[in-house]
């Protein structure tokens, strides 16, 4: 690519670029790349919102958005790979003898540089986006901490139990009032577990003699599935329980019914 012996007719970079764009193979690649990028963008926008559960907290909202955005960021790479994939398959060699020799392209520094540059930029975008989300969730956590409801979560082989120290309630169900920040203080009575209220987008391991913190704000009424995401032995699969995000008055009624005092 870089060798150009003809001194008199050396084209300007602009001319070379437009000539490059007019090449049939390049056009075919670009067309396929555009097509596949579009396919991946549509798939990304469709797949995660369709299959992921109801968004019931601020964090879950961020997670779903992130999954979709990451698909968009990686779509051009997919488009490029699938484009050459398709293009070469269309020109495949048939028969039982080896194909004729192709062009002897050993390297293309510009190509490698452009590809690495674009890939690095896309990665950088993803990294920065992820860090921003991470930071904003941490900031929200600090801001919300003072008026949050504290729930002590204990993982046992193979049952979860929840303690609401400020309300004097212990339960096997995770019930939460809507729109009030909640801090989970997670620990384990035995081996490692991982506390996962699915619709809240929260996950944190439960370790014996250590407390892990997690925080979110439920934003939607409905049922929560609480699961264990760390293999913890025989009944790991059954280490599940459910809970509910309730209106404040429903929540207070539930607390009273459990023998606690409402906050």
């Amino acid at each position: 690519m870089s060798d150009h012996n003809d001194v008199h007719l050396e084209p300007t970079p602009g001319e070379r670029f437009s000539k490059f764009l007019k090449r049939g193979d390049i056009r075919e690649t670009l067309a396929w790349a555009a097509f596949y990028t579009a396919v991946f963008v549509v798939l990304g926008a469709y797949f995660y919102p369709k299959w992921m559960p109801t968004v019931m907290s601020t964090d879950m909202k961020a997670i779903e958005r992130l999954m979709v955005v990451f698909t968009f960021i990686s779509a051009p790479v997919c488009g490029f790979v699938m484009s050459i994939f398709t293009q070469t398959l269309r020109h495949r060699h048939k028969g039982d003898t080896p194909p004729p020799d192709g062009p002897m392209i050993r390297n293309n520094r510009l190509g490698v540089a452009v590809f690495s540059g674009v890939a690095s930029l896309l990665t950088l975008t993803a990294v920065i986006y992820g860090l921003i989300e991470l930071n904003s969730s941490a900031e929200a956590a600090t801001k919300d901490a003072p008026n949050a409801l504290v729930v002590e979560v204990t993982g046992n082989q193979w049952v979860w139990s929840f303690n609401y120290p400020s309300l004097g309630v212990e339960s096997n169900m995770l019930n939460l009032p809507i729109d009030r920040p909640v801090i989970f203080r997670i620990t384990s009575a035995d081996v490692n577990h991982s506390f996962w209220p699915v619709q809240l987008g929260v996950k944190a391991d439960a370790n014996h003699l250590a407390t892990t913190l997690a925080q979110t704000t439920p934003t939607k009424l409905g049922t929560i599935d609480v699961k264990c995401a760390e293999l913890c032995g025989l009944y790991h699969a059954y280490m599940e329980t459910s809970g509910e995000v309730m209106t404040v008055s429903d929540f207070n009624n539930w607390v009273t019914a459990q023998g606690g005092h409402s906050a």
Binding site: V77, I84, H93, I105, T123, A126, V127
Partner: peptide
């Protein structure tokens, strides 16, 4: 996430070898 950059190079090598070839 930086690992995706060298992984991209691996892809590039295979794609570059395929490019304009008749497999």
């Amino acid at each position: 996430e930086m690992i995706s950059i060298p992984t991209g190079l691996i892809f590039l090598v295979i794609l570059g070898t395929l490019w304009n070839g008749k497999p």
